[in-house]
């Protein structure tokens, strides 16, 4: 087992996204979805990542948890949410550009080189662009092993962890040498609600302000969004009044 504080620092990636409960609307000019006056939150998978890092600190495995965010000015609110959950400090790389996973991963890799964590935990995907890429790209840039879509992280020594992953049809366990990148799946944990005193305390925690240029990263992406459209609407079906009627319909369709 890992000794006290053996994992040192843990970095966590956090992203500001449209709240999961909002019904998104495509803009009439097809340039994207409406974001003005729409509720935003910390990406749910990032919340799970923060929770896991904070639990590591509470268990004496990690010495410090740092929340790192690439995003607009308002993303400060979401970094504060991570701090209220128990992260120690934040790093905000401010940009109003679209945050392509490749560019975000380039920035996070530079942050990791400066902060030298034992582990970088991210959500497996952000619920806005649904890319599911940043952790893998980050691992690739750093040359660190990756444990994506993790449902369990178990230390096995001071220098290695077992990561159980949600794969198609079941679970897979990998042994990763530290430092490593891990991305959080749903069942890794249930994130806590920040208590009011912790929300107040979070206001005094430090957030470093940086820009992509500080890390030598240009935010222009090689993947350009040409247009965004509404998905085709499924034609409304009918309500049936009984099981018999349902069975007749399915028989008529040749399904039973």
């Amino acid at each position: 087992m890992a000794a006290n504080g053996a994992f040192g620092r843990v970095l966590v990636g956090v992203k500001r996204v449209i709240d999961y409960a909002v019904k998104v609307r495509v803009k009439p000019d097809k340039s994207g979805v409406e974001t003005v006056n729409v509720k935003h939150s910390l990406n749910p998978f990032c919340e799970i990542a923060v929770e896991e890092a904070v639990r590591m600190k509470e268990a004496g495995l990690a010495t410090e948890v740092v929340a790192v965010c690439v995003g607009p000015k308002k993303a400060q609110e979401n970094i504060r949410s991570a701090l209220a959950m128990g992260a120690d400090r934040g790093i905000h790389i401010e940009t109003d550009e679209e945050v392509a996973p490749l560019n975000v991963a380039r920035i996070l890799a530079e942050v990791a080189k400066a902060e030298e964590p034992s582990m970088f935990i991210l959500g497996k995907q952000a619920i806005d662009d649904d890319s599911n890429q940043t952790g893998q790209l980050l691992g690739g840039f750093l040359g660190w092993p990756q444990g994506t879509m993790a449902s369990k992280i178990e230390p096995v020594s001071d220098t290695a962890v077992h990561v159980t992953r949600e794969i198609d049809g079941g679970l897979e366990t990998l042994e990763l040498s530290l430092p490593a990148v891990v991305t959080a799946d749903l069942r890794l944990n249930k994130p806590r609600f920040a208590a009011l005193p912790n929300i107040m305390k979070a206001k005094r925690k430090k957030i470093d302000a940086k820009t992509p240029a500080d890390f030598g990263v240009d935010m222009a992406s090689s993947l350009q969004t040409l247009e965004v459209n509404e998905p085709p609407v499924r034609e409304a079906g009918i309500m049936v009044g009984s099981v018999d009627e349902l069975v007749e319909k399915l028989k008529g369709d040749g399904l039973i």
């Binding site: 490749l102 952790g135 893998q136 691992g139």
Partner: peptide, 23 residues
Amino acid sequence: ATVSGKNVIPRIGALLNAQPISE
């Protein structure tokens, strides 16, 4: 775009410096 595909394609992205396209 299975778990395995999603796991490996972006990793190649870092090696080839290319922005992957998901799903």
